[in-house]
Simulated scan of single mutants.
Amino acid sequence: MSTEQTTAADGFSYTLTRTLDAPAAQVWRAWTTPEQYAQWAYCAPGSVEMDVRAGGAWKATVVTPDGGEFPMTGSYADVAENRHLVIAMDVPGKPEPEKMTMELSPQDEARTRITVHQTCDTTEARDMAEQGTTMLLDSLTAFLSR
């Protein structure tokens, strides 16, 4: 069973933390393997590409519940296998990508705490990003419990 803790939004930032019933290496593979990521991250089949290394690129097409498709691109700003990932997301009209940090902390051999943090430009952007990340963590939790 997973637990969830949401740290109150501070300015335009949010932090979400959960404890997942999976070892860190399994969580890492779910987040960094295109085939696994596509299964839980609301992506169109075959749309996920990942070069998981600092400076490596990624892309995916996210499918919304109403069937809309949104291509997303970015790169990895920092990578420490099984521990830390800084994901840079390209945003149309913005000169710099938005960055999201994902940290994995093993709790024991079978459980991992995941912490996701992001700072946005506005309250609205933060709220939308936090809602999207909450949905992702819900789906990741279900994926890992199979």
Rank of each mutant, 00 (worst) to 15 (best):
T101E: 04
T3K: 09
H117Q: 06
V27A: 06
M128N: 12
W28Q: 02
T15Y: 02
A25Y: 00
E124D: 11
T134H: 14
A142K: 14
R146G: 15
Q36R: 11
E130P: 04
S139I: 00
S105A: 12
E130T: 07
D51N: 12
T6N: 14
A24S: 10
D127V: 12
V62P: 00
A80S: 12
E130I: 06
A24V: 01
T6K: 15
P71M: 01
K99Y: 05
T64N: 04
R111I: 01
T122H: 07
R53M: 08
P34I: 14
E98R: 12
G68K: 10
P106D: 00
T7D: 10
V116M: 13
A8S: 14
E109F: 07
I87Q: 14
E4Q: 15
G55H: 06
S145T: 12
V63G: 05
D51S: 10
V48P: 07
W31I: 15
T101I: 08
M102T: 11
D66M: 10
V52N: 06
A110Q: 15
V27L: 03
A60I: 08
N82D: 03
Q5N: 11
T123A: 11
E130W: 02
E69S: 13
G11F: 02
P71Y: 01
T61H: 06
H117E: 05
S47A: 05
Q118E: 01
S145A: 05
E103L: 11
T101M: 01
T119K: 10
E96A: 14
D121S: 15
A142G: 04
M128Q: 13
D108S: 06
R111H: 15
S139C: 06
S2Q: 08
R111E: 00
V79L: 10
D51E: 08
Y76T: 03
Q5R: 15
T32R: 08
V52G: 09
A22T: 08
S13N: 04
P65I: 01
T32S: 14
A8L: 13
P95V: 05
T3S: 15
Y14I: 04
E4W: 14
S47R: 09
R83K: 11
L104C: 02
E69N: 05
S145C: 00
R29N: 05
T19F: 11
E49Y: 06
G67Q: 04
E96H: 13
A24N: 05
T119F: 00
T123N: 06
Q5K: 15
G93I: 10
W58G: 03
V79S: 05
R53P: 11
A24T: 02
S2K: 09
M89T: 15
D90N: 13
R53N: 04
T33R: 03
D10R: 11
A88E: 01
G56D: 00
G11M: 04
R126L: 01
W58V: 13
R111C: 03
T115G: 04
T7P: 03
K59P: 07
A110M: 12
M72C: 09
